[in-house]
């Protein structure tokens, strides 16, 4: 099992291919994605890497987290997430992961917090059909209708689909294809939509339901150690 990545959803656009096809893509951006900590089997009972992404002012980070980042000798990170990996795929603390971590054409699973819709009715939330437009229906055209039987059972069953809060939950979209990667700017182009709003954080992992293609970098695509100072400067300029 390989580590995933944390990325920021930038937005959607389209790509025109040479053969005349258009592909709708979501652009994800990696911002200073670094390994913050390791979890090892003998110390913690499982093996994983903790990654951090984005940047945040040191004074806005709690003292405990500041200490945690100081141990790893990395800048304070906006978003931190853990990825379970096989013991042989552990990555050194401080290593920076680049966008070519994923091969073009490979399938990934993307998780994020979906856009909140607030209190939504049955039609929007569960695709109910609603009531009729006429034939005696008054005021309740978008209501959910009956919620059960009669005196027996005399209750509404638990889990009955009804109106309520919709969205703002963690959603995983499986088997999305990576169309293109841009390691210089830290961009990953993924075919189709991913959960969440623009500017939201998503985690990308190798698809669990598809075989991993050959030639993907293991344990991860890591930025060469002597390059970062030169390579990071233009990348930061492009984000403005």
């Amino acid at each position: 099992m390989r580590s995933g990545i944390i990325a920021k959803k930038v937005g959607m656009t389209r790509l025109f291919m040479e053969d005349g096809k258009q592909i709708p893509v979501t652009v994800l951006q990696l911002e200073n994605l670094q390994v913050v900590a390791q979890r090892t089997a003998d110390q913690h009972g499982y093996s994983a890497v903790q990654l951090g992404c984005g940047s945040v002012k040191a004074k806005r980070v709690s003292k405990a987290m500041r200490g945690h980042f100081a141990v790893a000798k990395v800048e304070p990170k906006r978003k931190v997430a853990e990825f379970r990996v096989a013991p042989e795929n552990l990555i050194d603390v401080g290593a920076e992961i680049t966008a070519d971590h994923y091969a073009e054409g490979q399938f990934v699973d993307v998780s994020g917090t979906s856009i909140g819709k607030g209190f939504a009715g049955g039609m929007k939330r569960h695709n109910f059909g609603g009531l009729r437009a006429s034939h005696g229906v008054s005021i309740s055209h978008r209501s959910h209708g009956s919620t059960g039987q009669c005196q027996n059972p005399g209750k509404v069953f638990k889990g009955k689909k009804m109106a309520g809060h919709m969205g703002a939950v963690r959603v995983t979209t499986q088997n999305l294809q990576v169309v293109k990667t841009d390691a210089d700017r830290g961009l990953v182009f993924i075919k189709g939509a991913v959960p969440g709003s623009k500017g939201g954080w998503v985690t990308v992992k190798d698809a669990v339901k598809k075989p991993l293609p050959e030639g993907v970098p293991t344990p991860a695509a890591i930025r060469a150690t002597e390059a970062p100072a030169a390579a990071e400067a233009p990348a930061e300029g492009g984000e403005e």
Binding site: V10, G11, M12, T13, V27, Q29, L187, G238, E239
Partner: peptide, 16 residues
């Protein structure tokens, strides 16, 4: 210019 606009401008230029 945000990143999406930048990418689109680049693509338009690349398509020529």
């Amino acid at each position: 210019m945000d990143l999406i606009a930048e990418l689109e401008a680049e693509q338009i230029a690349a398509l020529g």
